[in-house]
Amino acid sequence: MAQLLTLDDNEVHIWRTDICQLSPELVASYLPLMSEQEQQRNRRFRSEQSRVADMITRVFARTVLSHYADIEPADWTFSQGEHGKPEVSNQGIKLRFNLSHSSKMVACAVSRSHAIGLDIEYIKRKNDVLAIADRYFSKLELNALFSLPVDQQQDRFFDYWTLKEAYIKADGRGISLGLGNFSFAIENADTISISFSDRIQQDPTAWQFRLVYPDPDHCMALAVQGHQQDLLVRQFETVPLKPKSSC
């Protein structure tokens, strides 16, 4: 086992992997690392593409978590939290995590104890994202979005969208919250605030958010529940179980 990484209470680590770097042979080696329940779920996917994406995501989480505890990837166990969110259930392990994937990238955020949510989106899609905004965004967000120059609106749409997805994942209640019942104000990638309608009884100061742009094609958003003012976000890239090249 390699030396374990330190993860302080005020830290969140974000890991990502480029799916295109994973050979079919490497992906095939992931299956035995999944639990029997995960394998049964994987077999229910109708398309090969969906099965592969699910396999990569599950094993990616396992290999990432093994950077923080002396546990082999195959030995991690998980349970469902109050709202069905996966949680580590290995005895004595204090770790929180959240997964997200696009068509080309998988990402995993890890925290020692804070509720977290992560979303990653491929931002070069050709669909009419502004029509989606008109349906799901709050009035405050729509006003801010459409006040921007036209050539900046699509990128800002994905800023809002990933932040919304990250928040509802961190909260755990998902889409039932109603995407228009909370609003984001974005000053820059590290200065982001949230406000709530009367339907959501939460303290907006109890949340922190970050936007991350791993490459020109993707946007990531992180939501962290906690009042800590010195939140440190570190990023890592990896290829799960990639064989070491020989000399």
Rank of each mutant, 00 (worst) to 15 (best):
A166E: 01
G172S: 03
R156A: 13
D190V: 07
Y167L: 03
R173I: 09
A166S: 05
A166T: 05
R125D: 10
Y160S: 06
N181Q: 14
D155L: 11
Y167I: 06
R156K: 11
G172N: 03
F137P: 11
N127V: 07
L148N: 10
I194F: 00
Q202R: 12
N127L: 13
Y122I: 04
I200D: 01
K126Q: 15
I186M: 05
K139F: 13
I132F: 09
R135I: 08
I192N: 06
L163V: 08
S176Y: 06
I194K: 01
I175G: 04
V150C: 02
L145Q: 08
Q153L: 07
D134L: 06
R173K: 15
V129N: 08
S176N: 12
Q154C: 06
S197N: 11
S176G: 11
F157G: 04
R125S: 12
I194A: 01
K164F: 01
W161P: 12
I200Y: 00
D155A: 11
G172F: 00
I200P: 00
R135Y: 08
L142D: 04
A144E: 15
E141P: 08
I168Q: 02
W161A: 06
F196D: 02
G180Q: 03
F196H: 10
F146H: 15
R173P: 13
I186K: 02
A166K: 01
F182W: 00
S147V: 06
R199N: 14
G172Q: 02
D198L: 09
S138F: 05
I200H: 01
S193L: 08
P149D: 09
G178P: 03
Y122L: 12
V150E: 10
L179K: 07
F146C: 05
Y160Q: 07
K164I: 06
D134P: 09
Q202W: 01
N188R: 04
N143C: 10
E141R: 01
D198Q: 14
A144H: 13
F137H: 09
A189Y: 12
F184A: 03
S197E: 12
A166H: 03
F184V: 07
R135D: 07
D151A: 08
Q202S: 12
L177K: 05
A131L: 10
N188H: 08
K124F: 06
Q153G: 12
S195T: 15
Y136T: 12
R199M: 13
A131S: 15
R125Y: 06
A170W: 10
G172H: 02
I192L: 09
L163T: 09
W161T: 10
Q154G: 03
R156C: 13
N181S: 12
I192W: 05
I120Q: 01
Q202Y: 02
E121D: 03
D190R: 13
L179F: 15
I192K: 09
F157N: 04
